[in-house]
């Protein structure tokens, strides 16, 4: 009805025929399907190793090394979680519960001190004027370019002098002095992109520099700080070389070291156990990532607050 009215009212308007509409819709559907197909298969290709890992935790050694298909030949094996149990119990006197606890004893304090030190240093760089600021900032950027391996030997000697070998201090303490330059840089840039009006309003409201930091700047920095916490959590959780150098007692091993250890305690390695625990070791990082995802994306992409 309505198309009739339009047609009479505007005789020169061309009304598309039914066939033409259908043809256009079909073409759009085909192109959409094609796009999904290509994207889906590339995505699958990239994720395949992860699926394989998951499947391999249910396979025997022999099957792991002879098949490339991710599902075990006998699908009932998928109900058998013994690899997870055996891997968890380990062949040492400690279970992975100890190792996970150790990891958290490193990761959690480190994330906390990183957040505090980064915020303080970034606040000073982004908001205060003092002599030598530019020079100090370029030194900080300079250390970002330095390969971390260069510092291993002098750092080791220093912590040895301090009697901190075989403790978690060498893994946590540096972060308390904002040596994770990348994070400091990230927060500085975020803060630079944030308008100062709110801080000025707070100064007029009566804030001193520290109240300003706590009541105004930290809430503004939340997305950036969540990104920092997330990265530091994942990187520290996965760190291998740090604990390898400083931790020598098995009782104090974090997950990354314990995993390596399960590979070489005996000649005969039950790979499914190791793979199973590797998957479990991924879980904390994955959980934290998904919890923080929303803020993390905001922090990585936004440069401030809209006016």
């Amino acid at each position: 009805m309505s198309s009739d009215t339009v047609a009479t009212a505007l005789p020169k308007t061309r009304i598309p025929s039914n066939a033409e509409v259908l043809r256009t819709q079909r073409r759009e559907r085909i192109s959409l399907a094609l796009r999904y197909l290509i994207l889906g298969s590339v995505g699958l290709l990239m994720l395949y190793p992860l699926f394989w890992l998951l499947g391999a935790s249910f396979k025997s050694n022999q099957e792991i090394f002879t098949t490339i298909w991710f599902l075990p030949r006998d699908l009932t094996q998928l109900l058998d979680f013994s690899a997870y149990y055996n891997g968890w119990m380990t062949r040492t006197e400690f279970t992975f519960a100890t190792y996970f606890l150790n990891s958290f004893l490193i990761v959690i304090p480190r994330v906390i001190v990183t957040l505090i030190s980064c915020t303080l240093v970034a606040y000073s760089f982004a908001r205060f004027e003092y002599p030598g600021k530019k020079f100090l900032f370029s030194i900080m950027i300079g250390t970002m370019l330095l390969p971390p391996i260069v510092l291993r030997v002098p750092q080791y000697l220093m912590f040895k002098e301090l009697g901190m070998i075989d403790t978690y201090w060498p893994l946590i303490l540096p972060s308390a002095f904002a040596v994770d330059t990348f994070f400091t840089f990230l927060v500085v840039q975020f803060l630079r992109g944030t308008p100062r009006d709110m801080e000025e309003a707070a100064i007029i409201d009566g804030c001193n520099a520290l109240q300003l930091l706590w009541h105004i700047v930290v809430p503004l920095l939340k997305p950036a700080l969540i990104s920092v916490a997330l990265f530091q959590f994942i990187w520290t959780m996965n760190d291998f070389i740090g604990p390898l150098i400083y931790i020598s007692t098995v009782e104090k091993y974090p997950v990354s070291l314990a995993l390596k250890m399960s590979m070489d305690v005996s000649g005969e390695v039950e790979w499914a156990n190791i793979i199973a625990i590797s998957i479990v070791a991924l879980l904390p990082s994955l959980t934290v990532f998904f919890l923080a995802q929303r803020y993390f994306i905001e922090g990585a992409t936004s440069s401030g607050i809209k006016g």
């Binding site: 100064i203 409201d205 009541h215």
Partner: peptide, 27 residues
């Protein structure tokens, strides 16, 4: 600033984004 007995309205409003209106005013 706080000892001068002044209050200021900014061009971009400069409200504290993480506080409710009440807290903005009460801060």
């Amino acid at each position: 600033a706080k000892e001068r007995g002044i209050a200021m309205v900014f061009q971009n409003y400069a409200l504290y984004p993480h506080m409710k209106v009440y807290d903005n005013m009460a801060f």
